[in-house]
Write a protein that binds this DNA or RNA. Structure first.
Length: 853
RNA sequence: GCCCGGGUGGUGGAAUUGGUAGACACGCAGGACUUAAAAUCCUGUGACUUCGGUCAUGCGGGUUCGAUUCCCGCCCCGGGCACCA
């Protein structure tokens, strides 16, 4: 038999799989497909982290299992998300080219991944930094541009001082750069955006039909942040000074924010968005954001322009983090000379400018209802503004749970001293609202919306927190944006035939704040595709966010060598959508949102006919260091998978990571515990000595029962991705087999077969030693026999008042009477009953008998 | 502040349409083998105990014959969102 020489065995079988192309797949219409996908790694210089193989092993088990159980055509690919900052920063540090470094890292990752025995189709590898790939990333940009979904706009954007580039909103975490953790500041810059907001509704609605972890769906829901409300126009009128309306109407230029401020028939309106139109009677003032255009428009009518300008200046100095700091005291200034008119009661109310109202949400203006909004309440308290209660909590309820109206509804204007009132922002029943008194919030909303629409001063509206995706970056190591600027023709999309636009090599790619590509002579030596001019023509020097590359890579896997198209329609139709996708939860609003957006765009452009890329998603939990903290270089607690594999072997490593705990949980690493897995594999190995080739059936029927029970449990556990309990069940079986004098070859082979997706190398080796010529990966998954699982005898617990006092062994098919009779015969039970008859007897078949005394 | 997860032996974890808490593994203790050690194997291992039992699934209540599981009120940890009108 020899010793369990994992090093030799693992090398041997890795070579065998490679030589035989065991896991290469091709479209085969007669077979069902299964697309089993890992989030492709970023090939960092640090090499593979122990967290990578956790998810990769999980998908590999599923891939191997599905080939065996369902004979499916399993697409299980891998590739590299190779553009991005770390390689570039490292390249700058050691003064080399990121391309070379990336290639070295990819080579190293490939070696490491191969050493783990994953059943990837290595012929389909993709590398996003290769021109043959990013040609199609640029093609994707073209598609978006042509559909009006890619646009350049000057806007306040997030800027990382350390990385010297702009970032997407999703890449700013707690006001800091997601990559380098440095402070992010706001800058007004002209940048490229993808119009993901066009798909906000579908991105939200489709979540319900996805088999994804609930927390991820919830994060996306919150991020999209849909809220239904009403746009309401408030008349603006001059208070002390007269309003020169002629002047106001003179300027009709269409600035993006212009719509918030409407004028018609000489009347100036301020439009606000609210989700609570039922509190309209409680609106005692208005607030506009410092950036609101009303200030410029109404400049003439405002008496304290200087004071206002000073406030705007102060507000503009603050970054977004300071602006949105909740602990900060609210500040604001009243616009003297202007008043708004509350449309429901024609009351004149003051208008304030305050930086707690944001220009980038809704209309940048609000009606303030201090009695029912915490922020407005704080502001009203500080500036001694009236607080009118218009919603009361419903306290009384009838028996059938229907709301009833409080007996007394005050119907007078009721100003509350702020010191005795605490803000109530829930729904309830309305008071102080004229004819609407007594309505509950929902009824009120419906009624008032009808009224507002009838008066043509309001309309239903939906708002989102989701913003368009900022995709341009002022960095070198990314896909160039396929745009040319011609002095004569303006902004021109690069034609498909001119793709890829390759990254030039003659560049000092150190970040300066200006795109490094600006400095390449070669890069800008280009003709205008429209007029043919060579002078006054330059390329867009920005590159694309790496998340653009990763938004479609799973489509490229189905057709990785196609040089005419990003993918063939037919192949995509066969393989997509992805059936199982496994990766970290950190991409909840990044990659997972962007990829969904891309699929919808491509679908609408007619390239695809499905709506969602990833039917089923699972997140692997983080593997923590032994001390329970995150593994990090600075803490010196990082475990290198290479070391573990060298010491224990890849099979042990795979099995250990699956045995640690549930896939989705965060789990601390324990090098000490690995030995248990190694012992288990040694045990399996040594069972060869007990294996009897003549013995085709086991004498021990309890072993047979356990074997079939184990097949059943492993099958169910893999389906549910509960790998930790699957392994413990195999351990139970191996422990029992070890205690046998002899084990039949049939039983032993069954154990090896169900072990093979988890520990493929040792399984192949034993399988071949038992005389099999094929790869175990091509074997059929065993079927358990339900009849063989049934136990003849079972143990029943006997409880007195819910406490277990004895256990009895009975025939499985024992009748209730017989079981109770037998229980009453127990000496222990007799003692507990002390001669009395039980008041009640509860019998749970196959489980227990409970006596109540 | 709001929204999700979660809290079980010395450790990782198992068991929830309410039904024997602690599977499996690590560690630890004792034993066998060995001149010795490693490896391996065997036995024990939640706590307390007057050896009858008692107490134990973050804390305090409740429902139930019976609660880790359901309900109410807290505490702690992790994650997400955060002036979103």
């Amino acid at each position: 038999m020899g010793r369990y020489d994992f090093e030799k065995i693992e090398k041997k079988w890795q070579k065998y799989w490679a030589d035989h192309n065991t896991f290469d797949v091709h479209e085969n219409q007669s077979k069902n497909k299964y697309y089993c996908l890992d989030m492709f790694p970023y090939p960092s210089s640090a090499g593979l982290h122990v967290g990578h193989p956790e998810g990769y092993t999980a998908t590999d088990i599923v891939a191997r299992y599905r080939r065996m159980r369902y004979n499916e055509n399993v697409l299980h690919p891998i590739g590299f998300d190779a553009f991005g900052l770390p390689a570039e920063n490292y390249a700058i540090k050691i003064n080399r080219n990121p391309k070379e470094i990336t290639q070295e890292n990819i080579d190293n990752f490939t070696k490491q991944l191969k050493s783990l025995g994953f059943s990837y189709d290595w012929s389909r590898i993709v590398n996003t930094s290769d021109p043959s790939y990013y040609k199609w990333t640029q093609w994707m940009f073209r598609e978006l541009y042509q559909k009006g979904l890619a646009y350049k706009k000057k806007a306040p954007v997030n800027w990382c001082e350390s990385c010297k580039t702009v970032l997407a909103r999703e890449q700013v975490v707690d006001g800091k750069c997601e990559r380098c953790k440095n402070e992010v500041i706001q800058k007004e810059l002209s940048q490229w955006f993808f119009k993901i907001t066009d798909y906000a509704d579908e991105l939200l609605a489709n979540l319900d039909k996805l088999d994804w972890p609930e927390p991820i769906k919830e994060i996306q829901r919150n991020w999209i942040g849909r809220s239904e409300g009403v746009l309401i126009k408030f008349k603006i009128s001059p208070s002390a000074t007269s309003l020169a309306s002629g002047k106001l109407l003179a300027d009709n230029s269409k600035l993006p924010n212009e719509s918030q401020f409407l004028n018609s028939n000489d009347q100036v309106y301020l439009e606000i968005f609210t989700t609570r139109p039922d509190t309209l009677f409680g609106a005692t003032f208005m607030v506009i954001a410092p950036e609101h255009k009303l200030i410029n428009k109404m400049g003439e009518a405002i008496n304290n322009k200087q004071e206002i300008d000073e406030y705007i200046r102060e507000a503009s100095k603050k970054n977004e983090l300071e602006r949105t700091d909740l602990n900060k005291e609210k500040t604001g200034v009243e616009l003297n000379g202007l008043e708004a008119i509350n449309p429901v009661n024609n009351k004149k109310i003051p208008i304030f400018i305050a930086d707690y109202v944001m220009m980038n949400y809704g209309t940048g203006a609000i009606m303030a209802v201090p009695a029912h909004d915490k922020r407005d309440f704080e502001f009203a308290k500080k500036y001694k503004l009236p607080i009118i209660e218009v919603v009361r909590q419903i306290t009384e309820q009838t028996n059938n749970n229907q709301n009833i109206i409080p007996k007394q509804i005050p119907n007078y204007e009721f100003q509350i001293p702020s010191s005795t009132y605490s803000c109530f922002s829930d729904e309830g029943i309305s008071i102080n609202s004229g004819e609407f008194n007594g309505l509950i919030t929902q009824e009120f909303k419906e009624k008032i919306i009808r009224w507002l629409e009838g008066e043509k001063i309001g309309q239903k509206a939906v708002n989102y927190k989701l913003r368009d995706w900022l995709v341009s970056r002022q960095r070198y190591w990314g896909a160039p944006i396929p745009i040319i600027y011609c002095e004569k023709c303006g902004e021109i999309l690069v034609p498909e035939k001119d793709l890829p636009i390759k990254l030039p090599n003659d560049v000092d790619f150190r970040p300066t704040g200006e795109s490094p590509l600006t400095r390449s002579k070669k890069f800008h030596a280009v003709k205008c595709p429209r007029c043919g001019a060579t002078h006054g023509v330059r390329r867009e020097p920005d590159t694309m966010d790496t998340f653009v590359c990763s938004s479609w890579y799973f489509l490229r896997y189905v057709d990785p060598h196609n040089y005419k198209k990003p993918f063939s329609r037919k192949k995509v139709k066969y393989w997509l959508p992805v059936d199982l996708y496994v990766g970290g939860a950190e991409h909840a609003v990044l990659h997972l949102m962007y990829a969904r957006f891309f699929i919808k765009v491509l679908r609408d452009a007619g390239y695809l006919d499905f709506d969602e890329p990833f039917a089923k998603l699972r997140n692997q939990g983080m593997i923590l260091a032994e001390d329970g903290r995150k593994m990090s270089k600075s803490l010196g607690n990082v475990i290198n998978p290479d070391d573990i594999i060298a010491l224990y072997g890849a099979d042990t490593f795979r099995l250990y990571e699956m045995f640690m705990g549930p896939l989705e949980d965060a789990k601390p690493w324990s090098t000490k515990s690995i030995i248990g897995i190694r012992r288990f594999l040694e045990k399996i190995w040594k069972l060869q000595t007990k294996c009897n080739k003549q013995l085709t059936k086991n004498k021990d029927s309890s072993l047979e029962r356990l074997l079939h029970k184990t097949i059943k449990k492993i099958t169910e556990d893999i389906e549910a991705m509960k790998f930790n309990t699957a392994i413990s069940q195999m351990m139970i079986l191996a422990n029992k087999m070890e205690k046998q004098e002899r084990v039949s070859i049939i039983d032993y082979q069954l154990l090896i077969t169900i072990l093979s997706p988890f520990a493929p190398h040792i399984a192949e080796e034993i399988w071949s030693k038992l005389g099999n010529k094929n790869s175990i990966a091509q074997e059929n998954w065993p079927v358990y026999n339900q009849n063989l699982i049934e136990e003849r005898e079972i143990e029943l617990a006997i409880q007195i008042n819910g406490k277990v006092r004895d256990k009895i062994t009975v025939q499985t098919d024992i009748a209730e009477d017989g079981a109770i009779q037998k229980a009453l015969e127990s000496v222990k039970i007799k003692n507990w009953l002390t001669g009395k008859d039980p008041k009640k007897v509860i019998y749970i078949k196959g489980k227990l008998i409970s006596f109540v005394v």
